[in-house]
């Protein structure tokens, strides 16, 4: 199986997020970056499939500046075979449609049987790119899988996806795209030998021209939407601590919820 895992480098989950001074981005000073947690499930699932079938290859793919090489290196260290880093100044400010076009162009360079994405990146929380790429490539997809079974001889797979109060069991032909939800697997950590080996593994850097995409067709001027304001959510302040014995406190809480909050 030829497997690709598309990943994004994002600020770590414990990061404090503040708007930048111009209010159009977040303040990035002092942030530490990680591989988007949902994308890690995709890398791990790729590695598991390769191990189960005893052959195949896992390629980690990402878009972004120089720093993104660190995230790709992490994917190589846990066991991915190679990495593709799409780097081009014109990509700054591109919208989801443009990012999807660029990824689709990179993915078309190789015949992948399975392409993984995270169900969403934990920075912009959009959750659209994997689905956009599937549509552009004419591939079927399942979004938000938490279980996957590959039937290689029949070129098909069975995926579970969680919906409200139920699980959908979906049969899908390969090649296909899956976006990964938590619960799919437990991503492994990089071992020291893995980290050493990663340095020898191939990392290809591609520009837009390598993908035969003109810069002005995907740059910020073509974006269908522009971010005009990033704000902190309305601050919550501490309310009251209800004192008294357990039964007094409960009685007072019920009173406040009924009379003040009016939610009961």
């Amino acid at each position: 199986m030829n497997i690709a895992a598309c990943i994004k480098q994002v600020p770590a989950t414990e990061s404090k997020i503040r708007p930048s001074t111009d209010g159009k981005d977040i303040d990035r000073t002092g942030l530490s970056y990680v591989v988007n947690p949902y994308d890690e499930f995709g890398v791990e699932e790729g590695l598991k499939i390769k191990e189960q079938l005893g052959d195949g290859s896992v390629t980690a793919i990402s878009i972004g500046g120089e720093k993104v090489a660190e995230a790709l290196r992490t994917c190589l260290a846990v066991g991915s075979d190679q990495a593709i880093h799409i780097q081009d100044d014109a990509i700054e400010g591109s919208d989801g449609h443009a990012i999807a076009r660029i990824l689709a162009a990179a993915l078309k360079k190789s015949d992948y049987d399975i392409i993984f994405f995270g169900r969403q990146a934990i920075d912009d929380d959009s959750g659209a790119i994997g689905i956009h790429v599937a549509d552009l490539m004419g591939l079927p997809h399942v979004a938000g899988i938490n279980k996957l079974e590959i039937i290689p001889d029949e070129k098909r797979a069975v995926a579970n996806r969680q919906i409200e109060g139920a699980t959908e069991v979906i049969e899908i032909s390969l090649p296909a795209i899956f976006t990964c939800q938590k619960g799919l697997n437990e991503p492994r950590y990089a071992s020291l030998p893995g980290i050493m080996k990663a340095k020898q593994k191939p990392m290809t850097v591609l520009s837009l021209s390598d993908l035969e995409i003109s810069a002005d067709s995907v740059d910020s001027s073509k974006a269908k939407t522009t971010v005009i304001k990033i704000e902190s959510p309305p601050a919550r302040s501490a309310g009251i601590i209800i004192e008294g014995s357990p039964s007094e406190a409960v009685a007072e809480l019920i009173r406040l919820l009924r009379e003040e909050a009016k939610v009961l």
Partner: peptide, 20 residues
């Protein structure tokens, strides 16, 4: 449309303007 949506899991909100 002008749309406001939570980002970073709700740690911030982003307001986007559509051009079409």
């Amino acid at each position: 449309m002008t749309a406001t949506r939570p980002i970073y899991g709700g740690k911030a909100t982003s307001t986007v303007l559509s051009h079409q």
